[in-house]
């Protein structure tokens, strides 16, 4: 069958179909910030600057690196970031 695949909502329909994104924190105070280098050229330069700005403000920063930008992060790395950080910044482009 062509056209979009459509399912019938099994719930009481009291929430919007479009799921909401997690809201951004009002402040970074007390949060752990992950900086993810996706292995794109000079991404580390950008993230080094971000790190120095954040640490100057006394914030906790963890650094992570994907083996290659051509594929999604390995599951272990995703899980590590999700369990160690409250927010993540990643450098996408070169």
């Amino acid at each position: 069958m062509s056209g979009p695949r459509v399912l019938l909502d099994p719930t009481s329909e009291q929430r919007p179909v479009q799921r909401e994104r997690v809201s951004r924190p009002a402040s970074l105070e007390g949060l752990t910030i992950g900086l993810l280098d996706i292995s794109k050229n000079r991404g580390d330069v950008f993230l080094d600057r971000v790190e120095s700005h954040l640490t100057e403000r006394g914030l906790t920063v963890n650094r992570y690196r994907k083996p290659t930008f051509t594929r999604p992060a390995p599951v272990e790395l995703q899980q590590q970031i999700a369990t160690e950080c409250d927010v993540v910044v990643e450098g996408l482009a070169d």
């Binding site: 979009p4 695949r5 459509v6 399912l7 019938l8 909502d9 099994p10 329909e13 179909v17």
Partner: peptide, 9 residues
């Protein structure tokens, strides 16, 4: 004859 909300995948 079904009234439930349609959810597109």
């Amino acid at each position: 004859k079904l009234s439930s909300r349609r959810v597109e995948v």
